[in-house]
């Protein structure tokens, strides 16, 4: 695989995949950064900022590689700040509003559990550049999952009030988890070329981690009903436009300025 980059895979599918990874990290990192200074304990402010920081760092790597392989001279910043919502490829889960701290933690846990499996699978990607990013990111995300998993357990099995909040968070967010495991043509291309796992293949492990954690948290796993989807192909929730309006403000208001 080393002489020509990505010789056996459709370039559009690969670009699509890199955007998905980068946009998930970007939008979740952005959501977490909204908490800055408002968390329920100083230690949580520090931990959330730290997680957000990791995710923004990962965004730079994924979107940087996306721009490089696209070959049109777009940088990670160009991709983050100058695309409109329909061009974003993150799953709907990460754009869900923060809600209370319990909802933020539950969203984090449900995502982290998927994210870690995904990155671990990508460590053996046939493309070294992908494998290298995954290697670095997996270390960070293993820590994110340790933290979010631990807090979900402690709050689920805490007071009646904390249990209720975690249950509501879980029920609200559950319909947004299905999208993580639904593959499309781009995913199939990638899997066939050995560049990344088929999304469905990550489901069993995720079910295991989530199931065990929820049991320990004394939370009931919701039934897999109708699942929301669309983010992976650019059809987002109403929240996405506001995230971008805020995030992209300076780049849009002062086109061409460098910062």
């Amino acid at each position: 695989m080393s002489s020509a980059p990505f010789p056996t895979v459709d370039q559009a599918a690969l670009f699509e995949f890199l955007l998905r990874m980068g946009d998930n990290a970007l939008i979740l990192g952005h959501r977490l950064s909204e908490w800055c200074g408002h968390a329920p304990a100083l230690e949580e402010d520090i931990a959330l900022a730290n997680t957000a920081l990791d995710l923004i760092g990962q965004t730079q790597l994924w979107l940087g590689l996306a721009g490089e392989m696209e070959g049109k001279g777009r940088t990670a910043d160009n991709l983050a700040y100058l695309r409109d919502a329909t061009e974003f490829r993150n799953v709907l889960l990460v754009e869900r509003p923060n809600g209370d701290f319990g909802k933020t933690l539950m969203r984090q846990f449900l995502f982290d559990a998927w994210h870690l499996s995904m990155l671990q699978a990508l460590r053996s990607s046939a493309d070294k550049r992908i494998a290298d990013i995954a290697e670095k990111a997996a270390k960070e995300v293993a820590y994110h999952l340790d933290r979010s998993r631990d807090l979900v357990i402690r709050l689920g099995d805490g007071t009646a009030e904390s249990h209720r909040r975690m249950r509501e968070a879980l029920d609200d967010l559950w319909p947004y988890t299905g999208e993580l495991f639904i593959g499309d043509a781009a995913d199939e291309e990638l899997a066939a070329a050995g560049l990344g796992p088929a999304p469905e293949s990550l489901k069993a492990e995720w079910d295991g981690v989530v199931g065990e954690t929820l049991t320990e948290a004394t939370l009931k796993k919701p039934a897999d009903g109708y699942m929301q989807r669309g983010g992976k192909r650019g059809v987002h929730t109403e929240h996405m436009g506001f995230i971008l309006a805020e995030m992209q403000f300076l780049q849009r208001a002062y086109p061409g300025a460098t910062w």
Partner: peptide, 27 residues
Amino acid sequence: GNWITRAPTLERKAILLAKVQDEAGHG
């Protein structure tokens, strides 16, 4: 923190996040 979500580049966002995290650490 008021400007973290509006930082103009990914690098500036990361630097500001790290700074505000440091301030919490100082606290």
